[in-house]
Design a protein around this nucleic acid. Structure first.
Length: 593
RNA sequence: GGCGCUGUAGCUCAGUUGGUUAGAGCGCCGCCCUGUCACGGCGGAGGUCAUGGGUUCGAGCCCCACCAGCGUCGCCA
């Protein structure tokens, strides 16, 4: 770059008060308007756009004629107030323009594969293949800069509260519990593997044993799980652990952190988080991560059908199940076809069927009109807070299943009714999770969270008599129907940890092999401790009003977990494999796809 | 892995009942244009209709297979 005497300013900085200043601007050609005898250039950087004018009297005019979209230039010139009637109110810099005396074309651009200067929808894989161009667009600039501010705000918050950030290793030991590990073969120890961390869980607990009573880390985590829209193979967490604390202490600091971020970065005052138990969440919303931006709570109307002639509902109730209603605001105007589509959707969510009742101004309509008198419809409507013009949907089956189905339909209704406003942030804590779940395939107990969480006070007694009734000191932070993160008070005594492993069916040998180092650490004066991890990608996504994690990650994998820009994963030369003592058994290992 | 939707120009899309030479806007190239800001005008280039097979006198359109993308469910202590 040549030396330039005029001060450098950003493309969003200049105002009419800068008139007469001689300045330097660096940026990309956002748009060119060539009038033949007069050329306007919109020069863009991440701060904004400034109009630059060339006329034929200037030496740079011939160079300006060559400029095309996305060329990179330096212009030196003076700030001029735009002539009367040519002010552009859409630009912050719209009152001025730059009259150029020097134009330096630093680099030309090939014709971009998609418009960089428009927020037009473009095939996502094309965006990802040319991610560096996609990231030039204002939306991505904004999202990543917001992400930076959020992470910085968190680090500042924890620093101010005496936490220290400790880096934990990426090459660790594989443990067969939980999600599938990403493995890294060891060249120096043939046949052995490191694993990439699914989270720094054990390491941060060891930091507690070491006396670092307040730990945090912006930690990368990797899980080799199946593809999902809302998932990336690697993701970022703000990971926190504290010694000598209660569940309340951890929740307080995490809530305070998030509220600080929302205040400082989004300038948004978040009220004290709503709290509810897991049991209540399931009963009222059919979900352990309820979206609290709207009501539409599930309503149990089993008693109204206890003596009904409606065999379907009666059967469910007699078998100990429930009939649950969900209000559909404005749903009375839906067509039969709409209700059929809802029914199909409910079946996909696991329902056996669905009964709809529309409370129209012209009377009650229902898919089960024979069994639901207008009086009964009115009574159910009343309980669901439905008014004329609304509809409600009824589901009947085993209670737990019915709640889950109704909970998913509640979200679907809210989506259709436009109740999911991305500008509204409804935070909540869900507490008192069950300690165990039943593995669907084997029927064996598996931890609902992880085996390092501690059962709550008084829960240990249930371990032999009724283990599935045990509650954990485990809490989830929920935002708008998304789980932002999970935390728990941990087990800090070796004997208790061994007891849990045993309950999960692990032999002493297995415990020693997989977690020996960890249980041993608990034997050396491990303090009581607990913590939490929040998913940064998800949190930033919601903060930015985005609906896809990839919109807040600089270089994400695509939906098939491929990096389409670098083309990864990809085959490697046989020499590399041999050094690692690996042989591929993949079909067509030559090209690897 | 299951199910649903989509695949046509560089991008975003249209394409009727199966019928002659497959279109539009933006972008790109050339010429013209001194106050535009999504500048304007004239002209032009650009297509394996994802791929393979089938039905048909004739397929972008119908059928089968396959690939890719998108969504969703299974999975994610």
């Amino acid at each position: 770059m040549q030396t330039i005497d005029a001060p450098v300013v950003s493309c969003g900085a200049l105002r009419s008060s800068d008139e007469g200043r001689r300045v330097t601007l660096n940026g990309w050609i956002n748009r060119r308007r060539d009038h033949g005898g007069l050329i306007f250039i919109d020069l863009r950087d991440h701060e904004g756009i400034t109009q630059v004018v060339f006329d034929p009297a200037q030496a740079s005019f011939t160079d300006a004629e060559q400029l095309r979209s996305e060329d990179v230039v330096t212009v030196v010139g003076s700030v001029r107030r735009r002539p009367e009637g040519t002010i552009n109110a859409k630009l912050g810099t719209g009152e001025i323009e730059i009259v150029v005396d020097t134009l330096v074309i630093l680099n030309r651009s090939a014709v971009p594969p998609f418009p960089v200067n428009l927020d037009e929808t473009v095939n996502e894989n094309l965006r990802l293949e040319y991610r560096y161009l996609d990231l030039r667009r204002p939306r991505m600039q904004h999202n990543l800069r917001t992400r930076h501010k959020i992470i910085k705000s968190m680090r500042d918050f924890f620093d101010a509260h005496d936490f220290i950030e400790i880096e934990t290793p990426l090459l660790i030991k594989s443990t067969p519990e939980g999600a599938r590990d990403y493995l890294v073969p060891s060249r120096l120890f043939p046949g052995s593997f490191y694993a990439l961390p699914q989270s720094p869980q054990l390491l941060k607990q060891l930091c507690m044993v070491s006396g670092f009573g307040r730990y945090m880390q912006i930690a990368r985590c990797m899980r080799d799980e199946d593809l999902r829209a809302d998932r990336q193979p690697e993701f970022t967490q703000v990971d926190v652990e504290m010694s000598f604390v209660s569940q309340e202490d951890v929740m307080e600091i995490m809530e305070s952190c998030v509220r600080t971020v929302w205040r400082d970065v989004l300038h948004h005052d978040v009220p004290t988080f709503v709290r509810m138990t897991h049991q209540d969440a399931m009963r009222r919303f059919g979900s352990d991560k309820p979206d609290l931006r709207y009501g539409l709570e599930l309503t149990d109307v089993s008693d109204l059908f206890a003596a009904s002639d409606f065999v379907v509902f009666r059967t469910a109730i007699d078998a100990g199940g429930s009939v649950i209603g969900v209000r559909y605001p404005g749903g009375a105007s839906l067509s039969r076809r709409d209700f059929d589509a809802l029914t199909e959707s409910a079946k996909r969510h696991g329902a056996k069927g669905m009964v709809w009742v529309a409370l129209g101004a012209d009377g009650v309509k229902s898919s089960a009109a024979k069994f639901i008198s207008p009086e009964l419809a009115a009574e159910i409507g009343n309980r669901c807070d439905a008014v004329t013009g609304d509809a409600f949907l009824l589901f009947a089956d085993a209670t737990e299943l019915t709640r889950t189905v109704a909970g998913r339909m509640r979200v679907e209704i809210a989506t259709k009714a436009g109740l999911r406003d991305p500008k509204v942030f409804a935070f909540a804590w869900v507490t008192d999770f069950p300690y165990l779940e039943r593995d669907e395939a084997t029927g064996l107990p598996v931890p609902a969270h992880h085996p390092f969480s501690s059962p709550g006070p008084g829960q240990w007694e249930l371990i032999d008599s009724d283990p599935f009734a045990m509650r954990a000191q485990h809490y989830d932070m929920v935002l708008n129907g998304y789980e932002l993160g999970s935390g728990s008070i941990r087990i800090h005594q070796a004997a208790q940890q061994r007891r849990i492993f045993a309950m999960l069916g692990m032999s002493d040998e297995q415990v020693e092999d997989r977690f020996g180092f960890f249980v041993r650490a608990l034997e050396y004066g491990a303090p009581p401790h607990g913590g939490m991890a929040l998913g940064i990608d998800r949190l930033v996504m919601l903060a930015c009003g985005e609906e896809d994690l990839r919109e807040v990650i600089a270089f994400p994998k695509n939906q098939a977990f491929r990096d389409v820009m670098m083309d990864a994963p990809s085959p490697v030369p046989g020499k590399l494999l041999r050094e690692l003592y690996l042989t591929s058994t993949a079909p067509q290992a030559e090209d690897g796809r």
